[in-house]
Design a protein around this nucleic acid. Structure first.
Lengths: 136, 136
DNA sequence: CGGTATCCTCACTGATACTG
DNA sequence: CAGTATCAGTGAGGATACCG
């Protein structure tokens, strides 16, 4: 193989979208977005059902996450002006496409879970880095 | 009884790997992992070249990221005991497979960048959410 | 050159309380 | 029911200084 001297890296691969890609990665890396999106992947849900479906989420984070998603056009918000207020959230096509793009990653994670766990143990066993758990 | 129906969220979709999936998502969501991995995707690089290839990264974060990656078996570290020390990092097959799984997501981001940006503008224009910036 | 150790900041997150 | 407002804790990440 030719000696590749072009260091360049990711910036070369992603001309100027890199900032936006980081943004998306940040989003999917945040604690709730993927959970909420995948939950909505099963179908439209109202606020309270959503909160029930994503066990640990707080009202604040659900609201914040939902607003981000709506703002980006990944979910739609439909409020019915009824007496007990009812608001339904639903994935848009864009949202579904994101979900579809994230799924493979979840698949990768599930598939290689064992391999990685094993490597971690091996890494610890062979004492590659440090064996010391904590310097006293 | 419809008191509490099974919403069937993400937990249903991902039986028990969900914790690990979150872990992977956290990892790829962190600021540097994907940048480093994708940079190494072009070929092996030594520490300093890596730092040069990922502009904003600090020594600390490069080291931390690299250690995480090595620990998980995503990259290999090869140190040559020469006079000016030389350490080369390279993606393993596992690392390459992660990169291959992340790429589509980057592709998704690049593809829908415009759509999302447009939606954000529309969202702002139509004033969907809020008019009041601060409660006064 | 290739790290390691330490301090510091501040953005993300959660708990709580209140409103329409 | 569906949010909004506010306060406080945590820890990822950056700057700096030093070692092998």
């Amino acid at each position: 193989m030719a000696t590749q001297r072009t260091i360049a890296g990711p910036c070369t691969a992603w001309p100027e979208d890199s900032a936006f890609i980081r943004e998306v990665l940040d989003r999917i890396g945040d604690k709730w977005t993927v959970l909420v999106v995948s939950t909505l992947g099963a179908g439209p849900l109202r606020y309270s059902d959503l909160q029930a479906s994503v066990p640990g989420i707080s009202q604040r984070m659900l609201t914040v996450t939902l607003k981000e998603l709506e703002r980006d056009g990944l979910v739609t918000r439909t409020a019915y002006p009824e007496v007990p207020p009812r608001v339904v959230y639903e994935l848009t096509d864009l949202g579904r496409s994101l979900l579809a793009s994230v799924m493979p990653l979840a698949g990768w994670a599930a598939e290689h879970h064992g391999t990685i766990a094993a490597h971690r143990r091996a890494h610890a066993t062979t004492g590659v880095g440090r064996a010391a758990t904590r310097a006293g």
